[in-house]
């Protein structure tokens, strides 16, 4: 479903060049969940943003659903992939009601946007229909993240990119949102790329994962290998030890 070959990302500031992603290649099968782990600044979010089309300075090739996508996405590339961000406060307009926030992607893609579609979308993520009339500040963090997930799924994308979707939530709420994401993946045969610094979350949600360090992909393993603590590199072992103090 996703084929990434040798992508590089450089950031230039003043006379300083930052090689943020160094020739990273990986594939994700249809219906699979791939995790990306690493410390802040390792390039994991940049990889995700390149997949989403938010980062346009990459070189290399990215294929999605059997076709190549460019740095600038064409209109018909857009419904292929949607993204859910860490902070649900930041991703919902504070002065727009939930109903309007959910209609936005449909309107921008020129599709029908009515209250019924919004109601079905809300129910799909376990929220009551009348939440369409609420503002983001009237919702809890977990409810807001559910709205963000509902919005990402409205265009029925085959691929969903998740950037630390539960790190701002309480553990008890995190469990509910993770369960929702797992159920939706099964029901809708979604393909996930899941970025997180929490190896416990990755071990629960993903089939495979890649470990990044300083822009490089240094190790690839299955979730079973992670759960069995069968890691190859010293760095991955260190990450594993420090995650469960």
């Amino acid at each position: 479903m996703i084929k990434v070959r040798n992508i590089d990302v450089h950031f230039q500031a003043h006379h300083h060049d930052k090689h943020a992603v160094k020739s990273v290649s990986f594939s994700v099968a249809r219906g699979e969940c791939l995790g990306i782990v690493g410390e802040s600044g390792c390039g994991k979010s940049t990889v995700l943003r390149s997949l989403a089309g938010l980062e346009t300075h990459w070189t290399g090739t990215i294929g999605m659903a059997g076709r190549q996508v460019g740095q600038k996405r064409r209109r018909d590339d857009l419904p292929l992939v949607q993204m859910v961000f860490q902070d649900p406060y930041g991703s919902l307009h504070p002065r727009h009601r939930i109903g309007r926030a959910l209609k936005e992607p449909l309107i921008s893609m020129g599709r029908t946007a009515d209250d019924d579609i919004v109601g079905v979308a809300l129910e799909g993520v376990g929220l009551p229909r009348h939440f369409a009339g609420r503002f983001p500040h009237q919702l809890s963090g977990g409810q807001r993240q559910r709205v963000a997930i509902a919005r990402a799924l409205l265009l029925k994308p085959p691929i969903v990119l998740l950037d630390e979707p539960t790190s701002a939530l309480d553990v008890s709420v995190q469990a509910e949102v993770l369960n929702l994401l797992s159920a939706l993946r099964r029901e809708m045969e979604l393909t996930y790329v899941f970025v997180s610094h929490d190896l416990g979350v990755i071990g629960q949600m993903c089939d495979r994962l890649i470990v990044m360090r300083d822009g490089e992909l240094i190790e690839e393993m299955t979730a079973d290998e992670l759960r069995g603590r069968r890691v190859k590199t010293e760095y991955a072992r260190e990450l594993l030890e420090k995650s469960f103090i």
Binding site: S172, N179, L199
Partner: peptide
């Protein structure tokens, strides 16, 4: 509710 790497992976995480 905290995901753990130990033991078999549960289909769903227990919730409160």
């Amino acid at each position: 509710a905290m995901p753990s790497l130990d033991g078999p992976r549960p289909d769903r995480l227990p919730v409160l």
